[in-house]
Simulated assay, not measured.
Amino acid sequence: MKYLKLIRFQNLLMLALMQLLFRYGFLNFQNITLALTDWQYLLLVLATVMIAAGGYVINNIMDQATDNYNKPKKVVVGKSISEASAYNIYFFVTVLGVGIGFYLSNVIAKPGFASIFIIISATLYLYATSLKQMLLIGNFVVAFLLAFSVIIIGVFDLLPVINPENKIEMAELFSILMDYAVFAFVINFIREIVKDMEDISGDHKQGMNTLPVILGLKRTSKIVFVLSLIPLIMITYYIKNYFLPNDLHLATLYSLTCIVSPLIYFTIKIDHAKKKKDYHQLSTILKLIILFGCFSIAVVTYNILHHHHA
């Protein structure tokens, strides 16, 4: 149990689910040959998850002081797992993730792509040790890495099999993946700031340069409010320009119920949030929005297929 806590098991599960949804709820239904076989794709998911796990472990090692203050019940390193074991786990999962990355890069005959895994691991290490202290840089890195776990699907599954015949179709699929990546980035970036609002007292004590520590909760709320309008505008644009003209009623209904409504709720609530538990609740809502956002790819695909058959 304590090891699952150390690697933030639920977050990793969500990451894996997200990558599986894009392949088995979307890409598999397109009329194209994909670069990776099923088990190679599972290896890609495993590599992503292992590298992310490494990121969580090193983060937990470096965060002992702040976490002891902010969330004493959740601290694992130094309590139920020694720092030495935590480092061993960190090296093991990171090396495994990078190793699988090397293997897959050779499978698709693009050995240079292995560097992606090395760069991501290095970035996660830098994040835990130094970037996190810098204003908004840390938030940006975490949000970008989640978005990148969507982009990497295109890099390994689509890029290697692009040819003159399927170029247009591939570009379209890539742009859909990019839209999802941007959405995941924006929501996660907002969520990172909300988590900083939740942790303001401990971060303040540790001298962290987070937005809430520097600007205070009131001003940060205003910034978050403005930021949360971006995904709302994005989805509304999507519904208006893609779903409605193509009679995708199910996709429209799903987006309005599961993504737009919670987002509006969040936007209204952020202004009134005062307590630690308010921010915690809001951060959870954003996590659910990311999850529902990923599921929407399967809903849209299903809707399109059934619409064609109807």
Score class of each variant (00 low, 15 high):
Asp271Asn: 13
Ile152Leu: 07
Ile153Met: 05
Ala184Gly: 02
Ala181Thr: 05
His307Ile: 04
Leu17Glu: 01
Cys294Arg: 00
Ile61Pro: 02
Ser283Gly: 02
Val299Lys: 07
Tyr302Phe: 15
Lys240Trp: 15
Val300Ala: 06
Asp278Tyr: 11
Leu244Phe: 11
Ile51Gln: 11
Tyr56Phe: 14
Tyr24Gln: 01
His309Gly: 04
Met170Asn: 01
Val161Asp: 03
Leu96Gln: 04
Leu229Trp: 10
Gly154Asn: 07
Asn28Tyr: 14
Asn139Ala: 03
Val98Arg: 12
Tyr238Ile: 04
Asp203His: 11
Asp271Phe: 13
Asp67Ser: 04
Ala181Trp: 03
Pro245Lys: 12
Gly112Thr: 11
Leu159Ser: 06
Gly78Arg: 07
Ile119Leu: 15
Met234Ser: 08
Leu27Arg: 03
Leu15Lys: 03
Val49Gln: 09
Ile193Trp: 08
Asn60Arg: 06
Ala128Thr: 08
Phe92Gln: 01
Ala47Ser: 15
Gly55Gln: 08
Tyr125Glu: 00
Leu4Pro: 02
Met197Phe: 13
Phe225Ile: 00
Ile193Gln: 04
Tyr242Phe: 14
Pro231Ala: 06
Ile235Phe: 15
Thr94Arg: 06
Ile162Ser: 03
Leu256Lys: 12
Asn166Arg: 02
Asn163Cys: 02
Phe266Asn: 07
Lys71His: 12
Ser296Lys: 06
Val213Arg: 08
Ser105Phe: 10
Phe9Cys: 03
Leu159Glu: 00
Thr94Asn: 15
Ala251Leu: 07
Leu6Glu: 01
Ile230Phe: 14
Phe117Ser: 11
Glu83Ile: 11
Ala122Val: 15
Ile100Ala: 05
Ile239Tyr: 10
Tyr242Ser: 01
Asp67Trp: 11
Leu229Lys: 02
Phe26Thr: 00
Asn188Leu: 04
Phe117Cys: 09
Leu291Cys: 00
Pro231His: 09
Pro72Phe: 06
Ile235Asn: 12
Arg191Asp: 02
Ile153Thr: 01
Leu44Ser: 09
Trp39Glu: 13
Leu46Trp: 05
Val75Glu: 03
Lys132Ser: 10
Lys275Arg: 15
Ile151Gln: 01
Ala147Lys: 08
Leu36Glu: 07
Ala84His: 09
Asp38Thr: 13
Pro245Met: 11
Leu17Ile: 09
Leu227Ser: 02
Val76Tyr: 08
Glu165Val: 12
Tyr41His: 13
Thr236Pro: 10
Tyr265Val: 12
Leu146Trp: 04
Gly207Met: 10
Ala114His: 06
Lys218Asp: 12
Tyr87Asn: 05
Thr257Lys: 13
Leu305Gly: 02
Thr48Phe: 10
Ile168Arg: 04
Val75Phe: 09
Cys258Ser: 06
Ser255Gly: 05
Pro160Lys: 04
Asn106Leu: 09
Thr94Gln: 15
Leu288Ala: 07
Met1Pro: 09
Met234Glu: 07
Gly101Ala: 01
Met62Val: 00
His307Ser: 14
Ile235Ser: 09
Asp247Ser: 15
Leu13Arg: 06
Leu232Asp: 04
His306Val: 02
Leu288Lys: 11
Glu169Tyr: 07
Leu42Trp: 11
Arg219Phe: 06
Val75Gln: 13
Ile137Ser: 04
Leu4Asn: 04
Tyr125Ser: 03
Pro72Glu: 05
Pro231Trp: 09
Leu253Gly: 12
Val57Asn: 05
Phe102Gln: 01
Leu12Phe: 10
Leu146Gln: 00
